[in-house]
């Protein structure tokens, strides 16, 4: 089996999604979750774009590309709002984690 570029990048996208999902769920610090959210997003976009690049004759499909650009902007908007919320919450709560998540901190942070 010959590994085509689209297949490679598609699988890479799938792996990014999995990685991001894991990070999104396990992190207690909200900023890390937002970062993981962006990794998932770009993984989905990569998967989407790779799928659109499968047809060697017709070339890349511009419709998914347009959708991905839209998606990137939407993800940026969500990121900006989420980060602003985190900052505003941290100002009042003196913590960048939600109260129910804040009992023991993030196990991925500062583990020896």
């Amino acid at each position: 089996m010959v590994l085509s570029a689209s297949l490679l990048y598609g699988l890479c996208g799938a792996a990014l999604i999995g990685l991001g999902l894991y990070g999104f769920v396990v992190h207690r610090r909200l900023i890390r979750r937002v970062l993981a959210f962006n990794v998932i997003g770009s993984g989905i976009f990569l998967l989407f774009g790779a799928a659109a690049y499968r047809d060697p004759v017709a070339g890349s499909d511009p419709v998914p590309q347009a959708m991905i650009i839209t998606g990137i902007v939407v993800a940026l908007s969500a990121t900006a709002l989420a980060l602003a919320l985190i900052v505003a919450h941290a100002r009042l709560a003196r913590s960048d984690a939600l109260p129910e998540d804040d009992r023991s901190g993030d196990p991925d942070e500062g583990r020896p």
């Binding site: 999902l21 769920v25 939600l98 998540d101």
Partner: peptide, 15 residues
């Protein structure tokens, strides 16, 4: 309800 509130649990349940 208290068990479900932390995102680590809710997020996992979604997955």
């Amino acid at each position: 309800e208290r068990r479900l509130l932390p995102w680590r649990v809710s997020g996992l349940v979604i997955l």
